Amino acid sequence: MAGRGRPKVPLVLTEDERVTLVRWSRRAKSSQALAVRCRIVLGCAEDEGLRSNKDVAAQLGIWPQTVTKWRGRFLERRLDGLVDEQRPGAPRKISDERIEDVVVKTLESTPGNATHWSRASMAEQSGLSKSTVGRVWKAFGLKPHLVDTFKLSNDPQFIDKVRDVVGLYLDPPEKALVLAVDEKSQIQALDRSAPVLPMMPGMPERRTHDYVRHGITTLFAALDVATGTVIGSIHRRHRAIEFKKFLTKLDHEIPADLDIHLICDNYGTHKHPSVRQWLTAHPRFHMHFTPTYSSWLNQVERWFGLLTDQKIRRGAHRSIQALEKDIRSWIDQWNSDPKPFIWTKTADEILERLASYLQRIPGAGH
């Protein structure tokens, strides 16, 4: 007995179409919607292209109407019919030339009455709306309101010092300990002028903007670049005599059969005659100085940043003793599960990056 309903138009695939549909349906990065449409067409092509839409829908777990739609699209336009059509809407009114003008002005000029462009000033200059200027800036990653700072080293031995310090990070000497050493001075014991209001649902922690000072202290720290452990020493003053005491502590705590390589900055305390005399009497200590204005090269600075973020900045201390106790406690917790910083850049990569950066700064090479 003949089946009821309208007769189906056979859906027959060429070999190239079948290969393409299979590939589109299996690609991990393909649109999931496109992959489903490909599987619909492949299912409809079975049984000499006469398989019912209900059978295909049941196999794929989708509505029969969906199979009907994409079967018809494919029969009408073949592979092109499976791709989403461009959505209707008003044509773009802003030309490429006007967008380019906004980008060029943002990058190469400043308004006459300000140091940088705002959305309002650029809108007035370009004749576009403020929201349009904002969308253009977002599309091209432009943020005129932001500024970052940098400082170029003027150290005549910059290249040699970079290679020396980076060499210690990437290829440390045998039977030796490499320590990144510095002082965090002027750590203030600050207490808020009123109690802190705790965080609540829908409301952040609140604290007064003013505070009471209870004095300052200094932390001397040595970061073992291999293990991440830290040896710390706290002193109320920041002089060569305190630095020598810290060196003496390192000498006592580190096994005598190991050489000690210290990475330091160029602060005067580290080069004081009394310190040089102490180093001469302790030949297993070797000093390696970072270039001037290059604190980023000393890994202990990164550790100081963690200490500041996690303990000091939002802390409240009613005395120097309370502050120092918190610092010692934080160091102990860090050393219970130390995490070394992994240095990845070679000296050549750093120098090449710096050379590329200097090329973008007018007059930097002179």
Rank of each mutant, 00 (worst) to 15 (best):
G43P: 07
A256D: 08
L13W: 01
G167W: 00
R73G: 12
T208E: 04
H366N: 11
L142P: 09
V102I: 06
G134V: 04
E205K: 09
K325F: 10
H145S: 15
D337T: 11
L354T: 01
G127L: 09
L42R: 02
D55H: 14
W278E: 11
L354W: 00
T344E: 09
I62H: 10
V300T: 00
E85P: 07
D171N: 15
S109D: 06
I331Y: 01
W296G: 03
E183D: 03
R51T: 00
C38G: 11
I40N: 02
L223W: 00
R313N: 11
I99Y: 01
I231Q: 12
G363F: 05
N53V: 11
Q157L: 12
L262R: 04
A90V: 12
K244T: 00
A28Y: 09
T346R: 00
G202A: 15
D101L: 13
L279N: 07
W334Q: 03
A114G: 07
A221R: 02
F304C: 03
S294Q: 04
F289D: 00
L306M: 09
K143M: 11
P201K: 06
K161I: 06
P198H: 13
P273T: 06
K339N: 08
V162T: 02
I99P: 09
L50C: 15
V83H: 13
L11P: 15
V181K: 09
Y169H: 05
Y293I: 04
L152A: 13
L11W: 10
A176H: 05
K54Q: 09
L179N: 02
P291G: 02
I241M: 02
L152F: 01
K29L: 06
D101R: 08
G202F: 11
M200K: 15
A57R: 08
D148E: 11
N335I: 09
L168Q: 14
S118H: 10
G43T: 10
L168C: 12
P198L: 14
T68Y: 15
W343L: 05
K345M: 05
P201N: 11
L152P: 04
V103D: 02
W117H: 04
D337L: 13
P362V: 08
R37D: 13
P195F: 06
S121T: 15
V36Q: 08
R26T: 15
S31R: 10
M203D: 03
W330L: 05
L197H: 01
R119F: 02
Q299H: 01
R314W: 05
R26F: 06
E324C: 07
N266Q: 13
V147G: 07
Y267M: 06
T308M: 08
D16L: 04
T66H: 08
L219G: 02
A281G: 12
S356P: 01
E85A: 15
E174F: 09
S295M: 00
Y267Q: 12
A316H: 07
N113S: 11
V9S: 09
E85R: 15
W63T: 14
R73N: 14
P10D: 05
V133T: 07
L177D: 08
A194R: 04
L11E: 15
H270G: 08
V166A: 12
R135C: 10
E85K: 10
E352F: 04
G363W: 04
V230H: 07
K325A: 15
P291A: 05
G365L: 10
V67N: 08
I342C: 04
H145W: 06
I159L: 12
Y357Q: 05
L219W: 05
W343A: 06
V225F: 04
G141P: 07
R73P: 12
